[in-house]
Write a protein that binds this DNA or RNA. Structure first.
Length: 592
RNA sequence: GGGGCCGUAGCUCAAUUGGUUAGAGCACUGGACUGUCGAUCCAGAGGUUGCGGGUUCGAGCCCCGUCGGCCUCGCCA
């Protein structure tokens, strides 16, 4: 060890000790005859003083020190001069009087400094990630991430789970996200796929009798990125045998309570609140509602039916809905221009045809473009339905179910952020349960699995699986934190007959099923226990616990929106020889 | 694949309606200074305004294309 202590360690009780510190030069204050250096490592900062007493040679070296140089100082811990303590530093009561110093490595003038107040552009931060990672915020986040993972591991170990690793090189499966492919050198024209999740392996482990499995698993999906989505991400993956949905939810409830308490000092009340998928869509238009604030959706389709107003009547007559949300008491903050912007937002982003709205003025009258089209009686009922008071603003969408859901969810989220309807430090945990088994894919005119093809229906829906697939609800559950899907899981199908019925509905032929999932179907036939589990998105959990708004800041080496690593410049080209070995030819890109 | 925002010194930003030699703070280089802690003071250096084209007497500013970053719709079982 070059050092005797870290830069965050020394206190007044250490005064008089001879110590050696190593670290990066955070800042220097050069007085000619006396130089102060703040030396930094990931534990903190300590002020080192170099004076003529340290020797002329050392003073000369100190004079040449610049930000981010790596240096070693040996000296004596001393108290600061009377009244010169630095309250901002944990080590601010002491300083190290240097007797020896050594420049361990010079730093080129960096493109930015870890301690600078203005944030550099994200492209620079990613290109020079090793400098960005020196920033206190990044170090705090990665330390939090490490603590979260440790807490998870401890929790599952305490509950008799065993950690089993599953392959990274697997096979491509139909359905789901686009796979990242890895060519096989040995097998001409054959490819491995990187796992989208260890789903099938963990089910096989259940068949094998490893009734409580857990893994911190890296997963890969070749889809477009978002603030909360990376092509490569980490899941806490677990699976249990001889359980129902309650057991899995209960196990995760316990984990969340422990995490919230140990890392945020929050007491969660268990069980965490739950609502069904149908309730979530009705009240919030989203299967991952942000419950830190209200603004529930109100359905007024029945009132719209009584109106001659074309926009309302047209929507309900076509089998659609008129639904809206109310902003309490802040109508005066919504100018015509701002409402026009919101109208553009729902039209553009969610394909709504328009946005109907009314403001309730102080005298109870309405300010609204629709007031001259909608009958007074209907307007009165609308006001009653929304429990309107003066100063309220109501926004309505008239459209099919999907558009009203997406549009109102979009409005709700945007308005809550703009109006600051929640405390950024607030955390809200809940479950959304009983998802539909299937969604209808209009484009391909077929049923697709909402979660995955191995999801078990509720026992009471088993009978109508074939006759009325739309009505069937799954034993599925999503963990929602502050409007983000933090995790999701299901009870799995554990008999091959039910699995076959589901495959049929999904248009997966017995041949294809045998080809792609034959091993799973086989396994289910050899004594598969009832089982289910869940996977949590660790990057997202870290993001939410850290109060951040993007997942890249929770990952040491993330990728850009175009799925590139700016530091290593991956993906890159490879040698022609490598391609030959893999029997791969690269097409010329199409001319634009 | 679609929409939006951004790109000016190493960094963060400014630059009137399109108008003289593109500025500031920090960083950098040199100098002064023995109690600072974002030290201070003096001096200096630093620019293909992302790139390519167009409009114009004249473009950092307007138009088209392109590259890069971010947000978002589609997509993500």
């Amino acid at each position: 060890m070059l050092r005797s202590h870290t830069c965050g360690q020394l206190r007044s009780s250490d005064i008089g000790q001879q110590v050696t510190l190593c670290g990066w030069v955070d800042s220097t204050r050069d007085y000619g005859g006396m130089i102060f250096i703040d030396l930094r490592d990931r534990y903190g900062k300590t002020q080192v003083v170099v004076t003529p007493d340290s020797g002329d040679e050392n003073l000369e070296i100190a004079k040449r020190l610049r930000g981010e140089d790596v240096a070693l100082f040996t000296g004596t811990v001393a108290s600061r001069l009377e009244g010169k303590d630095n309250e901002k530093l944990a080590t601010g009561g002491i300083e190290v009087r240097a007797s020896r110093l050594q420049l361990l490595n010079r730093c080129k003038t960096p493109p930015f400094f870890p301690n600078q107040e203005e944030m550099p552009g994200e492209d620079l931060r990613l290109r020079y990630r090793y400098i960005d990672l020196r920033r206190e915020q990044m170090q705090r986040t990665l330390v939090l991430r490490s603590a979260i993972i440790k807490t998870m591991r401890d929790y599952f170990a305490d509950n008799d789970f065993i950690d089993v690793e599953t392959p990274i090189l697997g096979r491509s499966t139909p359905e789901g996200a686009r796979d990242y492919l890895v060519p096989s050198r040995v097998h001409w024209g054959h490819f491995f796929a990187l796992p989208q999740s260890p789903q099938l392996y963990k089910q096989i482990l259940m068949v094998a009798g490893y009734d409580r499995y857990v893994q911190i698993a890296r997963c890969f999906r070749d889809e477009d990125l978002r603030a909360d989505r990376q092509p490569e991400f980490t899941q806490l993956d677990m699976e249990m045998s001889f359980v129902d949905a309650e057991d899995v939810i209960g196990m995760i409830d316990g984990l969340m309570k422990k995490l919230a308490k140990e890392l945020l000092g929050l007491e969660l009340t268990l069980p965490l609140p739950r609502m069904t998928y149908d309730q979530a869509m009705e009240r919030y238009g989203s299967d991952a509602p942000d419950l830190r604030y209200g603004m529930q959706i109100v359905d007024c389709s029945d009132l719209a039916r009584q109106s001659e107003f074309r926009v309302f009547r047209g929507a309900v007559d076509a089998g659609g809905f008129v639904r809206g949300i109310k902003i309490d008491k802040r109508a005066d903050e919504f100018s015509r221009k701002r409402i026009d912007e919101l109208t553009e937002f729902v039209k553009h982003d969610f394909a709504a045809k328009g946005l109907a709205w009314f403001r309730v003025e102080p005298d109870g009258s309405l300010w609204s473009p629709i007031s001259k089209n909608v009958e007074p009686a209907v307007i009165e009922q609308l006001k009653t339905r929304f429990a309107c008071e003066p100063g309220d603003l109501v926004m309505l969408l008239a459209d099919n179910w999907e558009v009203t859901c997406k549009g109102l969810n979009g409005l709700r989220r945007r308005l809550a952020a703009e109006l600051k309807l929640f405390d950024p430090k607030q955390m809200h945990f809940s479950w959304v349960v009983e998802f539909p088994m299937f969604e209808h894919d209009a484009e391909e005119e077929r049923w697709v699995a909402m979660h995955h093809p191995f999801t078990a229906p509720r026992p009471q829906d088993l009978a109508q699986l074939k006759s009325d697939p739309q009505a069937c609800r799954a034993q599925a559950y999503d963990l929602i934190v502050n409007g983000y899907e933090a995790g999701g899981g299901t009870i799995r199908i554990h008999d091959s007959e039910t699995q076959q019925v589901v495959f049929d509905l999904l248009g997966i032929s017995p041949e294809m099923a045998k080809d792609r999932f034959g091993f799973l179907l086989d396994a289910l036939g050899y004594g598969a226990p009832p089982h289910g589990g869940i996977a949590l998105g660790i990057d997202r959990v870290v993001m939410l616990f850290a109060g951040l708004d993007n997942i890249r800041d929770c990952i040491a080496f993330p990728k850009t929106q175009r799925a590139m690593d700016l530091m290593t410049e991956a993906p890159g080209q490879v040698e022609t020889k490598q391609l030959h070995e893999l029997h791969i030819q690269v097409e010329t890109p199409p001319a634009k």
